[in-house]
């Protein structure tokens, strides 16, 4: 299940069906004992009295893809994972839609959960990706990661 993922960017929202299809592939992975999943969703925050309707994601793509490949290899090795999948949206994602899908699979729950957490923290910190929050009046704010 650790075939190299070529690109982790997806144009627009990540569909729930796509997530289910990846999960289904693991039915035959009978050495696996635990999966951990993180889904990032666009939140309708209030900004200066306006509501966030969508986030537009942009990236410095080639370096982001290289960095993600490095993070992926390191986390798979560190936690001896059976599988790792990660997808991040580019372009417009509406409120309520999924913009990040991180999935880790291991023999036991602890490495799966710790790996998933580290994966999400690292990609938020290390990937050259930016989110522009677009409000209902057309104004925008640049997202800040906490």
């Amino acid at each position: 299940m650790n075939e190299r993922q070529k690109n982790f960017f997806i144009e627009g929202a990540i569909s729930e069906i796509y997530i289910a299809e990846i999960l289904q592939k693991y039915r035959t992975e009978t050495k696996a004992g635990g999966h951990s999943i993180f889904l990032g969703q666009v939140r309708a925050d209030e900004k200066d009295g306006q509501e966030v309707q969508a986030i537009e994601f942009t990236a410095y793509q080639e370096p982001a893809i290289k960095k993600m490949a490095q993070i992926r290899e390191e986390i798979i090795a560190k936690y001896k994972l059976i599988g790792l999948h990660v997808y991040h949206s580019l372009g417009i994602v509406q409120k309520g839609e999924i913009c990040l899908f991180a999935f880790t699979c291991a023999q036991h729950r602890k490495p799966a959960m710790e790996a998933c957490s580290e994966l999400v923290e690292r990609l938020k910190k290390e990937l050259p990706v930016w989110g522009k929050e677009i409000c209902n009046d057309g104004s925008h704010h640049w997202k800040e990661n906490r």
Binding site: F57, C99, W130
Partner: peptide, 8 residues
Amino acid sequence: LLPPYSGG
């Protein structure tokens, strides 16, 4: 030129 990242 890269400002602080805000993906995820």
